[in-house]
Design a protein around this nucleic acid. Structure first.
Lengths: 347, 347
DNA sequence: CTGAAAGCGCTTACAG
DNA sequence: CTGAAAGCGCTTACAG
């Protein structure tokens, strides 16, 4: 099947009528519509997207940009694939397709995005892994492409964003540890300029100060968000003069490496050092002792993300009037055995 | 910047010349070309892809279809993101972009692919997770779209495929275990109809028979390829009348759950039961005892996959004449401590 | 309810 | 070396 012309010739009607029938326009004879639909199905005709896009000025495709950096590959733990299902469940209602745009790791994300946007392959974009300063946001604003960011950014004053509740997680983790007598609480942050690290530390710092515990920069450990990073973090913890009694990890997979390094030194996680992780992932579910961490539904996050994006697109905004605001996505604490012990209070 | 028309008006030349200049055609005055390039850069002009595609009959986009099923999300372990970097390094040479097409889990993969193909969003397709019988292959053949499958299939007689060396892995694992005295060797296979499970078992069976060990169907354990599946597999192993002394896992993450279940019963992996995993992933690198498994470079696999695909595309075939053949991708054994002990040979 | 025609943004023979 | 024009496959006012 070549195109609408062939289909029209085959049915001996005009291409205009074929188009109207296929697109569900009301002013088509029902019998005609049936014939068109049947023939399209039989001959496997589907409208060429380039033709449609050119005429309509829209592609019905939404792009999700992901940085396929080595870091992301090791860490993302299928975070994006998880979010995808939620996004698609929203987009499907409007016959919008989702495509994932992996930015090559040797290409500048800003240049990559610029190219994708200019080519008009998508009608709207979702960007993620927002940096503290993220020029992509200015780019999208200027291009007047509807977009949303998964992650806050200092550049995001003219963007709508959704982000995980990093402050809330840091705060709850700190308070939970303080309640068990901890005073020296370490925290790990990513070594990159990704914005979430800054927010995480701010939440941590604020929670400490609320409880009268001074912030000690030596307890903030910058490592990669990977098992190797966890191993490294444990190594650094063990070298600290006054060893902390607890550590909060920004990424749960780090716990695997952290446990390993601790055990090598005879330090038992959950007995000698309290550990709280961030997001619970299937991988870490079998850790021993089980990891106290925070859970969320990636599917639900995807749904909200999708709704928020559509709220920013004129053609769909009416259906999602309640979804236009910036959102902090809550996480639920999953208690484990890695932080159950009490610290003896010093006399 | 609206389109080529604006840019041409701005430069006071015709759109034809602008197009030729931008596309590097030889018959353009160098000074003119410089002016056009500079103006395009300044005004941020990039050709609208729909216009190009419509005219040229190609999109310069390659699609990688992935099933975003719950299983894949939990298991894929960023396999696809890893392969992506290799693919892109090949495609970049020809200014081809890669997009990932995640099939919604409530949509039939065949229907999804049909839609994507018919819309002509991509010039060529890569499909993965091939099933034993996979109608997508017939669909792509009939649509005359260049494609390649990551994974063999019984349907693949008219397709070019690349696949991991499942037989080789099964064979080497079996032989390694036999050399250490094992006779009762269990194997896990996926519970789905994905073809690799069949190939894995065939390799296992063949290796056993070569060494005069009869194939025992009760040692083939069908479970999900996840940590939970590993847990379940261990559970079933422990229930077997004559307990096997070794197990080969088709997916390395299963080892986490398997270890856990074994330890709950006081069975020590690497001492009471030999374990060999499949692909080595960052997640399992910290297992104790360390897992004997097989390694490969996802990047290199992606490169080969990209080359093979281009070898099947008329426009690029000349550069990849040596890459057209079906390929079995080798894996390298990474010895660990999970299978080091010898089994006492029965008198 | 249907057909004929315009035009979306490009690229590319064709003329000059 | 450049311009004018055709046409890729659609959708959509417009006329009837």
């Amino acid at each position: 099947m070549k195109g609408i012309r062939q289909l029209a010739d085959h049915l001996d009607i005009s291409i205009g009528t074929v188009s109207r029938a296929l697109n569900g326009k009301p002013d088509v004879n029902e019998e005609t519509r049936r014939r068109v639909l049947a023939a399209a199905e039989e001959l496997g005709y589907v409208a060429n997207q380039s033709g449609r896009s050119l005429r309509q000025g829209e592609t019905k495709v939404i792009g999700l940009m992901i940085a396929s950096s080595k870091e992301t590959v090791e860490n993302a733990d299928n975070f994006f694939l998880g979010v995808t299902s939620g996004l698609q469940s929203v987009f499907a209602r409007h016959k919008l397709d989702l495509i994932m745009l992996p930015c090559p790791n040797d290409e500048d994300p800003h240049e990559y995005l610029k190219r994708m946007v200019a080519r008009r392959i998508v009608d709207a974009m979702i960007i993620s892994e927002t940096q503290r300063i993220d020029r992509r946001i200015d780019l999208l604003s200027r291009a007047k492409i509807p977009f949303i960011t998964l992650g806050r950014s200092l550049s995001a004053s003219n963007a709508t964003w959704i982000d995980l509740d990093f402050e809330g997680v840091a705060k709850r983790a700190v308070e939970r540890l303080i309640a068990r007598g901890h005073r020296r609480i370490a925290i790990t942050v990513p070594s990159s300029e990704i914005n979430l690290g800054y927010i995480f530390v701010e939440g941590y710092r604020h929670a400490l100060e609320q409880h009268g515990i001074p912030f000690d920069p030596s307890l903030v450990i910058r490592v990669k968000s990977s098992e190797q990073g966890g191993y490294q973090a444990a190594h650094e913890l063990l070298l600290l003069e006054e060893r902390p009694t607890a550590v909060i990890l920004i990424y749960e997979l780090m716990a695997i490496g952290l446990y390993r390094r601790l055990m090598e030194s005879g330090v038992m996680p959950g007995r000698d050092l309290a550990v709280i992780g961030f997001r619970d992932a299937p991988r870490s579910r079998f850790l021993q002792p089980s990891l106290t961490c925070f859970r969320m539904s990636l599917h639900d996050l995807g749904v909200k993300l999708g709704r928020m994006l559509l709220a920013n697109m004129p053609a769909y905004a009416e259906f999602y009037s309640g979804d236009g605001r910036n959102t902090i996505w809550p996480l639920e604490l999953v208690p484990g055995e890695s932080d159950v012990f009490q610290v003896a209070v010093k006399a």
